[in-house]
């Protein structure tokens, strides 16, 4: 292999300068797109997070279900409560191996604060078919402010491996 000459710090050629400029401008453009999207875009990754514990979050979920339960439905042969809270309120979703609890019901066009946390392992909240994804960690109360824009039934799948029943972990969100 050839070692470089003693003095290899030489000015760049015209082609190199041009290429570097074009590439750098493209980098700046891509960078500007990120804050631009944050302020102009209609959908962004939430950052609001609170510290919690599995038992504390569990109590909140149970109280929430008791207060706003409107019906029942079954997923994987298990009967789950269907819960609808008034628009603008805090709603809670609990992830545990291998269940999303409860089934949430929303009104189209209204705003809700959706809290998600895990009781045990890491889970992945993945709303299908709209493909909205959030990481769910135990000890972290992750809050997403949401406005449902279309009606229908949506499926929540777990997209983080959470031991061997992972593929059976599905839940439901209903928008009316």
């Amino acid at each position: 292999m050839l070692a470089p000459e003693k003095t290899w710090w030489k000015p760049m050629g015209r082609m190199e300068k041009t290429w570097l400029t074009v590439a750098f401008v493209w980098c700046v453009f891509l960078t500007l797109m990120m804050p631009l999207w944050y302020f102009m875009g209609k959908q962004n990754v939430p950052a609001e997070t609170y510290k919690t514990t599995p038992s504390q979050f569990n109590e909140t979920v149970n109280a929430f279900v008791e207060q706003y339960k409107v019906g029942e439905d079954t997923i994987n042969g298990v009967t789950l409560p269907v819960v609808e809270a008034p628009p603008g309120s805090d709603v809670y979703l609990r992830a545990s191996t291998w269940q999303w609890y409860p089934i949430l019901q929303f009104k189209k066009g209204e705003t809700y604060r959706l809290h998600i946390s895990s009781m045990d392992l890491q889970h992945g909240f993945s709303l299908q078919p709209v493909n909205i994804n959030l990481q769910v960690l135990p000890g972290y109360d992750y809050v997403a402010t949401i406005i449902p824009t279309s009606t229908g039934e949506f499926t929540i799948v777990c997209n983080e491996f959470c031991s061997l029943g992972h593929h059976t972990m599905i839940g439901k969100i209903i928008v009316k």
Binding site: M34, P35, Y38, N44, V45, A47, T49, N133, L134, Q135, V136, L137, Y140, D141, Y142
Partner: peptide, 11 residues
């Protein structure tokens, strides 16, 4: 899409 990290940090 992790909780606890700000937009600026992610960007």
């Amino acid at each position: 899409v992790d909780p606890g990290l700000s937009f600026a940090w992610k960007a």
